[in-house]
Design a protein around this nucleic acid. Structure first.
Lengths: 190, 190
DNA sequence: ACTTCCACTTAAGATAGTTTAAGAAATCGT
DNA sequence: ACGATTTCTTAAACTATCTTAAGTGGAAGT
C-alpha cells in the first residue's frame, strides 16, 4: 500500500507516534480505478471517505433532466466523498468517477468514528480539512454569484492549472455551470 | 451574559464539566448591535468567530462594481465569521451587518487556539460545525449550478422560512444571485 | 484501414435574467 | 403624525447564456 503521501498529508496538522500510525494505516483499504470506473454511484450507500494517491476523479450530480453539475475535481493529495451523504448515512446524491487511472485509500465511516475516539487528534486534522473545504466552497459561491462565466473560467484556470490540463472541456463547463458550447465561445475570444 | 443558548449549542456535540464550562465562558465577549451596525467590515482584520444569541445578521461581499452578493444569513444559534480571513488572518473580504437589533458572543482567534489546546474536545465541536457548513455550501453550489432562480427561491423559502420572514427581499435576491426586480417577477407568478 | 463514437466548435434562434425608469407601498426619523 | 427615505413592483428594452443542429477532427474498436 502506498502510504507515504497520506502520512505526509496528515503530518501537516498533527503528529503521530509509531503505534498511532500503525493503527491508522490498518483502517485503510486501497482501491484501484481504471479510467471511467466509478468510486461511488448515486443512490448507493456512501460509506467511505477517500484519499487520492494518484490519478484524477470527478464528483458530479445528475439532475432529473440528465444535466450534469460537476461538484469538484480531486487529484493527488485530495480527499473526496459525498459529504452530505457520508455524514448522514443516506444514499449518495452524487457520482464519483475516475477521469484517469487512479488509486485511492478508503476510510470507512465506522472506522473514522473509532479513530476519533481512539486518537482524538484526528478530530483536529479533519476539523482543518473541513474548514478548508468550507472556505473553498464559500469562495466558489461568492464567485458564482458575483461573476460572469468568463471571469469564473479564468479564475479556474489560474487556481487549478493542473486539473485544467487533465480533464476534458465539457467537465470544466459543468463545473462552471455553463454548457460546453458556451465555454467554447468564451474560449474563442481571449 | 446570555450563555444558556451557546452552552446548549455545544452540548449537542460534546459534554463539558463545570471547570471547562467556566473556562470556555471566560473567553467570550458579548457584543450588542443595533440594526444596521456592522459586526465586521471588509478590509478590517477579522479576529473573531461569532455566535448569534439573538437577532439576524447578513454576511455580504461587495464587488468592484458595487454589486452585493449575500454569502449567508445568521440568526439565533448560528455561528458566523469571514472564515477564509479568520483562518488565514488576512483582512476581511466580506461585511457582516445586523439586519435587526442583535446580540452576539465573540470568541477571538487566539482564544480559540488556546481552547483547542486546553480542551481538545472543542476540536470535535468545531469539526462538526465546519463539516455542516461545508455540506451546506456544497448543496448550495449544486443548486446554483443546476437550478433556475425560481427553484432556488422555493428551496430557500422551505429551508429558511424564518430568515425569509426576517430579512428584506433584496437581500434574498442577492443571496440567490439575482436582481431584486427579477425576484419580484418570480414571486408574482406562483 | 475503416467505421463508429465522442469531444469540440460554430452559428441561429430561444429563454432567463439584467438594466433602466417610474410609481406604489412600507418604514424611519423627528 | 409627517415628510423623507428605502423597499418593492411593473414594464420595456437589452444581454448573457441556452438549445438545437450541423460540421470537424481525433481516439477507440474491430
Amino acid at each position: 500500500m502506498q502510504t507515504d503521501s497520506i502520512l505526509s498529508n496528515i503530518s501537516k496538522h498533527i503528529s503521530l507516534d509509531k503505534a498511532e500510525i500503525k493503527y491508522f494505516l490498518s483502517l485503510l483499504r486501497t482501491r484501484e480505478l481504471k479510467k471511467r470506473d466509478f468510486l461511488l454511484r448515486a443512490e448507493e450507500p456512501c460509506t467511505a471517505i477517500n484519499y487520492v494517491n494518484s490519478g484524477a476523479l470527478r464528483a458530479f450530480y445528475h439532475d432529473q433532466s440528465g444535466k450534469e453539475a460537476t461538484i469538484m475535481f480531486a487529484v493527488a493529495d485530495w480527499w473526496v466523498t459525498d459529504m452530505p451523504c457520508f455524514a448522514n448515512q443516506i444514499p449518495a446524491m452524487i457520482n464519483i468517477e475516475a477521469i484517469t487511472k487512479s488509486s485511492v485509500l478508503q476510510l470507512e465511516k465506522e472506522d473514522i468514528e473509532r479513530l476519533y475516539i481512539k486518537i482524538p487528534k484526528f478530530e483536529r486534522h479533519f476539523r482543518i480539512l473541513m474548514q478548508n473545504a468550507y472556505i473553498r466552497e464559500q469562495l466558489r459561491t461568492l464567485q458564482n454569484l458575483s461573476m460572469p462565466a468568463k471571469a469564473r473560467y479564468k479564475i479556474f484556470l489560474k487556481k487549478y492549472p493542473k486539473i485544467a490540463q487533465q480533464v476534458p472541456q465539457k467537465n470544466i463547463a459543468s463545473y462552471l455551470g455553463i454548457t460546453p458550447e458556451f465555454l467554447s465561445t468564451i474560449r474563442r475570444v481571449k
